[in-house]
Amino acid sequence: MSLVIDAKNIDFAYRVLTNHQSSLKTLFKDSLHRKVRIENYQALKNVSFEVTKGETVAIIGKNGAGKSTLLKLLAQVVPPTKGGLEINGTVAPMIELGAGFNPELTGRENIIFYSALLGRNVKKVKQRVEVIADWAGVSDHLDYQLRTFSSGMIARLAFATATDEVPDLLLIDEVLSVGDGEFAQKSKTRMQEIIKSGTTVVLVSHDLLTVAALADRVIWLKKGEVVMVGKPSEVITAYQTSEI
């Protein structure tokens, strides 16, 4: 079995300023007084796990347990402070969809730009623009600036663009559906199709029912540490018991 994610003893610390200002003036002042102003906030401690190709792994835990931080590390946006993290293949993060959308650009330009940000081939995307817009239901607005779109249209366009190509590794932060009514159902169906298509998926969710339905394996995080890894039913039961 080939590994898509190989995480060994990962630590991650955020740097937090003890006073809220950050300026050269205060740095100068504090260096005279020999004050330490930067504290490390340990978000992940000694996290190790492996994900093999085709698996769907869910991360559960309370707010502040380090779930989203772990997803950021997997998205290779920030490097781990300590430890080794190896990821093989293309990664598509579904974390806050539409990061990179520019209101001054048209719908078409935004599809192309957002895809380029995700590391896709612009030439291929140009041929897919109509299909993407059609799926999102914004075809007749394609050449208007994004600031004229409603927020629902923007969300639909972002979802359609992000899911247009199936990556080797898909990272999902609660985004299992967008929009309302019909589109919510449509996007949910597409998401489930992608997850079941054999792509490797790591998802973060508070919705334990969804986790139980979709995941092959569950990782339970508490205060930055792995408490338990195993079958969804077992881990979810243990998690729920400890909550009470």
């Binding site: 998205a75 946006v77 920030v78 993060p93 990061a99 990179g100 940000l117 995700l118 590391g119």
Partner: peptide
Amino acid sequence: GGILTKVAV
């Protein structure tokens, strides 16, 4: 920054 903390560019 908004892009850089979400997408690996």
